[in-house]
Design a protein around this nucleic acid. Structure first.
Lengths: 208, 208
DNA sequence: CTCTGTGAACATCTTCACAGCT
DNA sequence: AGCTGTGAAGATGTTCACAGAG
């Protein structure tokens, strides 16, 4: 398949969220224009995004809410369950472990690691915190699909390297520092401080 | 000033982080190539990004670490302190309030709001949780620059609307749903579930 | 007549390549 | 000689506009 833009995939997630809302409300069909308004884009963008994956609509009518959300779930890989490990059980890691939004979408936290002895053995949201030194052994015995990095900046790259070495192919980094992975591994980063800095920039350069 | 791409501003934040590291190490000068390697871009990208704001380097030599980081702090608006309010003191809001990374960069949490009576009056990281109903009055008496939204999805847009009405001009949304603001307000969103979905997509379509 | 699907036009962002300081 | 600064070329992403299915 041709390479799909990251922005397209992100919008598909948004569309899906709306479709699920519409589904609950009992709405049967929806037009590209309606989806666009809800997600803050344009109808042409919606149609173009979907066109990369096939033809899902009926001309003159729109899209079947049920059929389109099923297709999107397939495209996004949300029809299966995903096993997730979190490294770092401090403020951010702990909050992530407790965050229910992941579970709802089929992402299950099966391991929680921390380097601090005090946390090891405590239970967070049903998962016992393991010693970070057991990372390799644990992931070998009970593999996961995705690892979340929630360790301090100066430890981030080292942990990422160890995780990559275990064969994990998707990493979500919450440490506020860029990390590097081989091109065989998918990496996303969430950097909250960076978002605040962007807002500060926008405020100082009051444009838009 | 001409409009600067969002991606450029984000990279500037990354460059600054490295410059501060280099500064601590006592490094005096740095080339665009070195900055690029650390941040995972190319030297041409670094030079182009900086060129939007002026000429900071010396040909044949590179950039002065101290001078460039000062310039970047000015450009990004990090030379002043920013007052921040968080709406929603639950799992995410609480973690944000406790997160020290913000404070280090000059972002100070001065208000914490929650709608749940049980949390109101408790103290998180030195800040007393206020009743969400006092939001307008509190922000009128003690204004903030930036508001973080950490309320449930179905309350997000309503809270954003109320916040916008108080005159706040920058919002960072952590609710996993797109919210809309007037074009006079700067909005960023952090959607962790969406990042996981992107990784799921990448795993299913194992490309790259 | 409505609304999708899509090539083509357009806009934006990145990379190239080289002139010009130091 | 080394490294910046920057137009120009190239790549990528978005919007337009219309043909065509229902």
């Amino acid at each position: 398949m041709k390479h799909i833009a990251e922005s397209t995939v992100r919008r598909l997630s948004d569309y899906l969220r709306f479709l699920e809302e519409l589904e609950q409300q009992g709405t049967r069909t929806v037009s590209s224009g309606e989806l666009a308004a809800l997600g803050g884009t344009t109808s042409a963008q919606v149609r173009k995004d979907l066109s990369f994956f096939g033809s899902f609509g009926k001309r003159g009518l729109g899209y079947s809410v049920a059929a389109l959300s099923k297709s999107l779930r397939e495209i996004l890989g949300l029809e299966r369950q995903w096993r997730v490990a979190i490294v770092g059980a401090g403020k951010i890691g702990g909050a992530l472990a407790r965050y229910s939004g992941f579970h709802q979408r089929g992402f299950h936290v099966v391991h929680l690691f921390d380097a601090a002895g005090a946390l090891v053995g405590t239970v967070i949201d049903g998962v016992t915190v393991k010693d970070e030194r057991t990372l390799e052994a644990t992931l070998a015995a009970e593999p996961v699909d995705i690892v979340l990095i929630a360790v301090p900046s100066d430890a981030a790259q080292a942990v990422v390297d160890r995780v990559v070495k275990t064969g994990v192919r998707a990493i979500l980094n919450f440490a506020p520092v860029p990390v590097h992975v081989p091109s065989t591994v998918s990496l996303r980063s969430v950097n909250m401080a960076l978002e605040l800095e962007f807002l500060a920039y926008a405020l100082v350069n009051h444009t838009r």
